[in-house]
């Protein structure tokens, strides 16, 4: 504290609380909508306080899904999302660890060429190569599969750079000691590098899990089979159906369920999340 100005401090608190209310208001409305039944959700004005239908709505959403929407039950879509997010996060971390290891600890022809090739992926987000990537995946017969959902997204320049950075800070003496003790490259990788980068792996996992869970455009393109829908794209199907019969209580319950896992990850693993975010973005 530099000076004691109680009024300004009080105003700061007031403004922060006001900011939090603005940020949280949409979520509050979502929660409230998820606790009322269909009849209440078509009466204007809509409620601002929660009702008593939360568990009924939860059960209906998880097991039956929404009538009229061409989407499977939400419980099923949540499972698909979880599998996709885990495959993307684990896949990205695994292949990035391996390539960073090769680039930092080995001298071999085309090393820099490989490095730049990985770097280029930063400049090619899915959004700019939609059609041709879709064609490749279709030709490989990977439409409507978990492989198709995850593999094309797991090349990662940011993760590779981050692990490269981490490996460069590991003292050379460790490698010398390991070699004197007769450890080969893979042994060194498994017993020294992986344990030393454990926190970085965890931090990256938090970020990548959120990234994977929130994918929208890619699943939208390559899944036509309802059994492969993820919950984030299922919301879109429900909104389309809402044009005819606005079952907002079910849509909002699904939204709530769809945002819960990543939000929980952020709140519960806050320090890892902050670490991951600041390390991957520079």
């Amino acid at each position: 504290m530099i000076e004691n100005r109680p009024i300004i401090t009080f105003l700061s608190h007031l403004f922060l609380i006001f900011g939090i209310l603005i940020i949280a208001f949409p979520i509050w409305i979502t929660f409230v909508a998820a606790t009322h039944d269909a009849v209440r959700m078509v009466q204007i004005p809509l409620p601002l306080l929660p009702g008593d239908q939360f568990f009924e709505n939860l059960k209906e959403t998880l097991t039956r899904g929404m009538k009229g929407a061409s989407a499977p039950p939400v419980g099923f879509m949540l499972l698909n999302s979880l599998i996709m997010a885990m495959m993307i996060a684990v896949g990205k971390i695994a292949i990035s660890l391996l390539s960073a290891f090769a680039i930092v600890y080995f001298r071999f022809p085309f090393r820099m060429a490989f490095f730049w090739m990985i770097f280029i992926t930063l400049m090619l987000p899915v959004e700019v190569r939609i059609l041709p990537t879709f064609e490749v995946v279709a030709n490989l017969g990977m439409l409507n599969s978990y492989w198709g959902l995850s593999i094309p997204l797991i090349a990662s320049a940011t993760a590779t750079f981050m692990f490269r950075q981490v490996f460069l800070t590991i003292p050379d003496e460790l490698l010398e000691a390991a070699r004197i003790d007769g450890a080969g490259p893979l042994r060194f990788f498994r017993d020294i590098l992986i344990p030393l980068s454990r926190t970085n792996i965890a931090a990256l996992f938090v970020i990548l899990f959120i990234y994977g869970w929130n994918q929208y455009l890619w699943p939208l393109l390559i899944t036509t089979d309802q059994s492969m829908y993820t919950v984030v794209m299922g919301i879109k199907q429900m909104l389309d159906a809402a044009e005819q019969s606005p079952d907002w209580h079910l849509i909002m319950m699904t939204s709530l369920l769809a945002m819960l896992p990543p939000v929980l990850v952020v709140v519960l693993m806050q320090s890892l999340f902050v670490k991951g975010l600041t390390e991957t973005e520079k």
Binding site: A94, I95, S96, L98, S99, F101, A102, I103, F106, F108, R111, F114, M117, I118, I120, T121, L124, V128, R129, P132, T133, E135, V136, V137, L140, I151, P152, I154, A155, S156, T160, P185, L186
Partner: peptide, 21 residues
């Protein structure tokens, strides 16, 4: 060994990034 280590990343990059681009 280093070629095997970078292979997964490079193959995915070639098939799903460089070729489509």
């Amino acid at each position: 060994l280093p070629y095997l280590l970078v292979a997964p990343q490079i193959i995915i990059t070639l098939i799903f990034f460089i070729w489509p681009a």
